[in-house]
Computed example of a mutant assay.
Amino acid sequence: MTLTNPSDVLSALIRCPSVTPEEGGALETLERFLSELGFTVERPVFSEDGTPDIENLYARLGNDGPHLMFAGHTDVVPTGNLEGWSHDPFGAEVADGMLYGRGAVDMKGGIACFLAALARLTGDKGALPGSISFLITGDEEGPAINGTVKLLEHAAKKGESWDAALVGEPTNPNQLGDMIKIGRRGSLSAKLTVSGTQGHVAYPHLADNPLRVANALAAALLDPPLDAGNERFPASNLELTSIDTGNPATNVIPGSVDVTFNIRFNDGWSAETLSAEIENRLRQAADALPDRATRGPARYDISFQQRPSPSFLTRDDALIGTLSGAVKSVTGRMPELSTTGGTSDARFIKDYCPVVEFGLVGKTMHMTDECVALSDLETLTQIYERFIVDWFQAQEGRV
């Protein structure tokens, strides 16, 4: 076992069954490794009513100079049906050049590679010309309430500040060097409840079918499109995710229907302006409904999630250029700069410092037989090593 070998580090982390919200020994293992490299490590636990307590880790090496943060999570999604796995999901088994296990790419692999890169640098060159910190949560795959957002607040209150951050999420769709994430779309979920009057399907004049109203309101949400996108972001997109009456009978007109939906939105919107647009569309569609003279105005209610995720775009050309250059120097490929995909904890970090994301290939994340190529672990470690060196050199040039 050597900390300069990313597969050794990753194997140790995979063997920790850290399914959200369980720590599973993953943070304890990471603390031991970071302590060996000279980091000062803290393990705060955060709580909130109605959510599980979450263990987190904050570690720092160095006391002054430019400060680079590496952020990520050791919690993983459940394994699903174990019979579908050809390898023990927590066994860290190697077969045909692939390392198998839950979290191999999302995202214990990224953590292992960054740690191995640091072990090589500190072993070869001694002290870094500045400070590096690890900000690691056990709540990214869960509700994300007692994790990164509170860990950032906790560290900032103690006087910590950062010049830049790298999140090690699996950003590459097909091969290492494909893509760097320089921002993320926002996410807003909502539930539309339409009320009607239950009745017999043979006597529709005595009932008020809420599905008729719900169909019209849902159509108004979908058309026209919210926007056409822009240079850095694709068009905002609304997807209906459920239409539910809770009615198993075929001869009963339901009394109400719930329509749930999610919007992934670009930086042309905020959660507030988007909510206002949704409410306006519903109001106009309800007012335009035909044949409501005898039944009265449509009755509906819209409720939005309490913690929507904002969209953001990192505009630090030096940070983006340094990471892009490191990727190209190792892989020979210039990565695409993208804002696609789901949300990540970068949405919290961007309030404290510029942040970019780059990690492993994400093809098998959350899947049965999640795995990573041993060669990719070595390549990503070399990219991270190059990036760390180049980033600190760029900071010296700014002084």
Rank of each mutant, 00 (worst) to 15 (best):
A288G: 01
R307H: 14
L118F: 01
L374N: 04
L118D: 03
S189Y: 09
F70N: 03
A59F: 03
A228Y: 02
I132K: 01
L27Y: 05
E31M: 01
V201F: 02
D88G: 02
S187F: 02
L313T: 12
K350L: 00
A59M: 06
S270Q: 08
A207V: 06
A144G: 13
M1Q: 08
V149F: 03
D351A: 15
W269V: 01
G103L: 02
V149M: 06
T250K: 09
R386Y: 02
V9E: 00
D317T: 15
I302P: 04
Y384W: 03
G130V: 06
Q175T: 12
S270R: 12
L282R: 10
K108I: 05
G199R: 11
F387Y: 12
D163W: 07
V356L: 10
R60E: 13
I145E: 13
L360T: 12
P308S: 08
D227G: 05
P354R: 08
H205W: 13
V41E: 04
E153W: 04
G62E: 05
V389C: 05
N262H: 07
G177P: 11
S311D: 07
G321E: 10
P204M: 11
S195C: 03
N215M: 12
N237D: 13
S344A: 14
T122N: 03
N81R: 10
E36W: 00
Y100L: 05
P44K: 09
G65K: 01
F90T: 08
E83Y: 00
D75R: 06
I180V: 15
E28V: 10
R15H: 03
E239D: 08
G147V: 05
T273S: 15
D287T: 02
R315D: 14
F33T: 01
L118N: 02
E140I: 06
A293D: 13
P297D: 06
G123Y: 02
V389L: 14
G186K: 11
T4I: 09
L27V: 04
G246M: 03
T197C: 08
V41P: 06
G159D: 07
K158M: 08
N215Q: 12
T2A: 04
D106T: 07
R102S: 02
A165C: 15
G342Q: 09
L37R: 04
Q393G: 12
I388R: 06
T379F: 00
A127Q: 14
H73D: 07
R281V: 07
A271R: 12
K363E: 15
G268N: 14
V252R: 11
I136T: 11
T79D: 11
E23N: 14
R120K: 13
L188E: 07
D287K: 12
F33A: 04
L121G: 07
N63H: 11
L152Q: 09
V330D: 09
R60M: 06
N146P: 01
T381V: 04
H73T: 08
P89I: 07
A288M: 10
D139V: 12
Q306V: 13
D227S: 08
P89S: 07
D223V: 08
P290I: 06
K108V: 05
L10W: 06
V259W: 01
M98K: 15
L377N: 06
M365G: 00
V105H: 04
L118K: 01
P254L: 10
R212D: 12
L337P: 03
F39T: 10
G130K: 10
T245A: 14
E378N: 11
T2K: 11
F358D: 04
A219R: 12
T381F: 00
R292K: 09
V19T: 14
L323W: 02
P6A: 00
A219M: 11
